[in-house]
Design a protein around this nucleic acid. Structure first.
Lengths: 342, 342
DNA sequence: TTGTACGCGTTATCAT
DNA sequence: ATGATAACGCGTACAA
């Protein structure tokens, strides 16, 4: 059923080797042979077999992108950038979704897919030290996000702690004195926003403000609903113990918090200032618009793809591999209505 | 470098055939042989070669998902569902992004990737009659969204016209008399929201209201910014010619329109009612919350994957293929604050 | 129950 | 410049 190079060769009256040469644009082929072969390809509707080519070449032309949830805007933007950048370089992208499940993360790195793809870009939620440790000889992995590569694998991210500190400092500088944090996570579970929590604490301390545990709300996840509930918990502290500013570890959390503020009749930013993290477009359209720490997501994606491709190339060559890198990408504190000075 | 079945066989003291049997869980293998082979696999770190297997089997285990933009929430949700469902059935998903470019759509369907994947789920923006027409013998395609398959390929979607009519009727029933439409598109370009515009028009006519061309704003695309600009254009019509209700072809357009209303001091829903389309979670959190036509997106994704898999199976078998189907999925009109009766 | 041998469609080496 | 031929790693018909 499928038409092969041999079929094309027969019709064009040449050998299969010549067809391969034409397909791969080998330089030394006479013009009329090219024409005959091209005609035969058209006529027969020949398409190269990706499987055969990968088997022969040992390269699949595929990268793997592993994220928790594709429909979380931050990951969606990341995916956009990765797919775009990979396509420009002639690579396809297999997307996998872990739904926050460590087992799925493991499978993505150790299962057959990891071998099928030439490399993996992973936005991990769980701790992965063990996985990476066993990963010797596997196809290369580039980490994106908060989890660092610990010298084992390349990592692309921003300085989460510095960014969180800057956001918190901004809240303090606009006159807030009781600044809360939403987004840390229950003790022994995923330590998602650990670095951001640390930055928050540092900024507070630098400003001579107390670090108040009651103002740190741990959430199971980073969705709008979690922010909504966390904010409700903060408001339940009562008028005098309530925060007058909140730094949220993600924009989605902040948008949820914003909703609770609205439904509770708490005015933003006059009674309560809010800053998120991620730089989502949604925050430009919320009411009030949302202040946020905006990482250069397109750049993160671009650098991740390039780093992965570089490592693939290095591994293909005989040269010994360069050591794993931690690359920091720029971010911006974007001040909007939700944290204007009062 | 890569370890093959032959390597494993040598170490386990069996033939390659036996290794293959163990890997594929062939029923009739003695227990101790299984143990020896398994041990050898572990020790050597053997991983099956996906390339060799696809070549041999003629199946890659990959589906292709083609969408305009991964970070548009509607497509992100679709991608989530497709990837989830495909994974459950043992298929990987290659994601491609057309960025609205017809050339890229064509390439996704006719390029090598189309052959690599066993089938394609396509959310097309351009007209694709020509592409589908030439697609005889290619791997199967399932269409998602507004563009129908015209009997050539399977199509999964909702009844866009009925849904748009229901949304418009709802606006009329809450007392709006000048109902506008945002989202049609410039004449000869993509006819993105054609069906939804038709439903809008039908509902107006049924209600005995005039179809006023000045209340139809055509947008280049379906993003927040387009909605923002379109709404500004509507408000510029002046106090007496302005609409008192707007049906937007997507939620993103509606959220943009909402922003313009807010910055222009137009009260929603009292002065202006708004209904979107897509059922995005973002609309549950906007201020005011957004009424919307919500298709069952998870179901669309699920049915799309199943339909594609069924067609792949049918094509593999000798049976002649069943005719292409148009499958309609349920939708819901979700009324929220933006269109409450005044 | 297991071993032998062949072919899937390509690319690449060796000749010519 | 092009033709014959050998791998690439795996699944399976056939044989034992």
């Amino acid at each position: 059923m499928p038409v092969t190079q041999a079929d094309v060769a027969r019709r064009a009256g040449v050998s299969q080797r010549t067809v391969s040469n034409v397909v791969n644009k080998f330089p030394h082929v006479s013009a009329d042979v090219v024409a005959r072969v091209t005609e035969a390809i058209e006529a027969l509707g020949y398409t190269p077999s990706h499987a055969a080519r990968s088997l022969r070449l040992g390269r699949s032309g595929l990268l793997q992108l592993v994220v928790p949830e594709l429909d979380v805007p931050y990951f969606a933007e990341l995916a956009r950038g990765v797919v775009k950048c990979a396509e420009e370089r002639g690579f396809g992208v297999m997307v996998r979704q872990t739904l926050g499940d460590r087992e799925r993360e493991r499978d993505a790195l150790e299962g057959p897919a990891a071998e099928h793809a030439e490399g993996t870009i992973l936005s991990a939620v769980g701790s992965i030290e063990d996985i990476l440790a066993t990963g010797r000889g596997r196809s290369p992995v580039v980490l994106i996000g908060e989890r660092t590569g610990m010298g084992l694998v390349d990592h692309i991210g921003i300085d989460d702690t510095a960014a969180a500190a800057e956001a918190t400092r901004h809240l303090v500088e606009t006159g807030r004195r009781r600044v809360a944090f939403i987004g840390a996570d229950p003790a022994d579970s995923l330590r998602m926003a650990e670095l951001r929590l640390r930055g928050y604490e540092q900024a507070l301390t630098s400003a001579g403000l107390p670090f108040d545990e009651t103002l740190v709300v741990r959430t199971r996840s980073y969705h709008r609903k979690d922010g909504e509930e966390a904010m409700a918990a903060l408001l339940a502290l009562g008028p005098d113990r309530r925060p007058d500013g909140v730094f949220c570890a993600t924009d989605l959390l902040a948008l949820g918090a914003l909703r609770t503020a609205r439904t509770s009749g708490v005015a933003v930013p006059t009674e309560l200032a809010l800053v998120g993290f991620d730089g989502l477009e949604e925050g430009e359209y919320s009411a009030p618009t949302l202040s946020t720490v905006a990482p250069d997501k397109a750049e993160i994606a671009r650098v991740a793809v390039e780093t992965l491709l570089a490592r693939i190339a290095a591994r293909a060559g005989v040269e010994d591999e360069p050591p794993a890198q931690d690359l920091l990408i720029a971010f911006d504190l974007v001040v909007r209505e939700s944290s204007r000075a009062v």
